[in-house]
Design a binder for these strands. Structure first.
Length: 399
DNA sequence: TTTCCACCGGAAAATGAGGTCC
DNA sequence: GGACCTCATTTTCCGGTGGAAA
């Protein structure tokens, strides 16, 4: 890139945008002042939290809904108001919000809770049992009401079981008179199958279901956000309607709708347009998919990329798994890399197909041919190859 | 109905790198 | 300093599984 071009970019940034007034409101983590169509859920959650103000045990609650239906936004919205209120009134309540998928492990979930209740835990070196008992001891010792929100709780439960939930509920109000509320948020309605009946009866006292937004609801949400995010007259109403309709067709996902508006605005800026149009939204719709593929492939580990290269080497497939394994081993040898076991290779194929990079189909040829797993690449070979070429380790062998 | 093929995927163990505790 | 811990990744083992062929 020439110095002139870099200077142009800096110059444009200095001048500022003529499209966006405040792009931040189109990102997922922005909590708006108003959450339309979620008033009843907000009231129910606020009522549950409010019992702690009176030092009374509140109902625990499970919250369900598909991605982008406003679960996390509602909880964070009420939590912000709640913490502001108790701080103002000088009421001492421990609150903790932990995203179980981002935390990743049982131990890190405990570390996050510990931090929020003013307890230091080393980031490794203790057993989960020890960490849990320190958290419980701190709660007992402080005798302060506590509110813990487990977002994406299904990830924690399906991987590690319900030990933390069981211990927290057993050590709470019943034995110590410490009022508490535990909130579990999940995309998956069926995760309760993993719970011990005692935990289920204790935690499932209330359930709130978030239905997907309809196209007209999404339109109202987008119009509100767009009025803050864009300058007056910098976006067509038709563009907002289109983004709402496209997202409504995909399970009413508000996050995707906001992404679409943001990317459409960026495209309009790149093209020097004065207004975001329907065409920009359409382009954003396809660009979001390409960007997703780019991010997914770019962040894959080396051997997953080698498997993709093996698939590209055979023209994208379809190819039998065992034969693909042979191609993969030869590529590994050519770069002096030790190939993984077949079991691990098989696991990576499963991951690639879950990510939508590869497509696996099973054919059964019975006694003569057995059960054949046929794998092919899903998406544009050239596009994926270009992404893999960005990896310095693979730029020379990516044919 | 049984056999057989190639694969699926759960479970446990191994590995190695980071750390804490006493 | 040695025992013990987490964590991510990988290997090893092995009991399914579907369905055409025998």
């Amino acid at each position: 890139m020439s110095n002139d071009r870099i200077d142009d970019i800096f110059e444009e940034a200095f001048k500022g945008s003529n499209i966006f007034r405040n792009k931040n409101v189109l990102f997922h983590d922005y909590i708006p002042e108003r959450l339309p169509f979620r008033e009843s859920q907000i009231n129910r959650v606020a009522k549950i939290f409010s019992s702690l103000i009176r030092r009374e045990k509140g109902s625990n609650v499970f919250i369900y809904g598909k991605p982008g239906t406003g679960k996390t936004a509602v909880i964070k919205y009420v939590l912000n108001k709640f913490t502001d209120f108790v701080r103002e009134k000088g009421i001492n309540i421990h609150t903790s919000y932990v995203n179980c998928r981002i935390a990743g492990t049982e131990y890190r979930v405990l570390t996050s809770i510990a931090q929020d209740i003013g307890l230091h835990l080393p980031f490794t070196g203790l057993s989960v049992e020890e960490a849990l008992s320190r958290v419980i001891f701190k709660i007992k010792n402080d005798n302060i009401p506590f509110l813990i929100i487990f977002d994406e709780i299904d990830v924690l439960i399906s991987r590690y079981g319900d030990k933390i939930l069981y211990s927290l509920t057993r050590s709470g109000y019943e034995s110590l008179s410490v009022p508490y509320v535990i909130v579990g948020i999940s995309n998956n309605l069926r995760f309760k199958e993993y719970l011990d009946p005692r935990v289920l009866s204790s935690l499932g006292e209330e359930e709130i279901v978030f239905k997907p937004y309809t196209a007209s609801e999404l339109e109202v949400i987008l119009r509100e956000r767009a009025s803050i995010a864009f300058y007056k007259d910098a976006i067509d109403l038709a563009a907002i309607k289109l983004a709402a309709a496209l997202s409504a067709a995909e399970h009413g996902d508000a996050r995707k709708a906001l992404d679409m508006l943001r990317v459409a605005g960026e495209i309009a800026e790149e093209k020097g347009a004065s207004k975001v149009s329907e065409d920009h939204v359409r382009e954003a719709y396809s660009r979001i998919d390409v960007e997703r593929t780019y991010e997914v492939v770019r962040s894959l580990p080396l051997h997953s990329k080698l498997i993709i290269l093996s698939l590209i080497k055979v023209g994208g497939g379809p190819i039998q798994a065992s034969k693909l394994f042979g191609v993969y081993k030869s590529i590994c040898e050519s770069i002096g890399e030790k190939p993984l076991s077949y079991r691990r290779f098989h696991g990576l194929i499963t991951e690639l197909s879950l990510l939508g990079i590869a497509n696996r189909r099973i054919y059964n040829y019975g006694r003569r041919g057995g059960r054949i797993s046929s794998i092919r690449i899903d998406g544009s070979i050239n596009e994926i190859l270009n992404i893999i070429r960005d990896d310095p380790l693979l730029e020379d062998i990516a044919f």
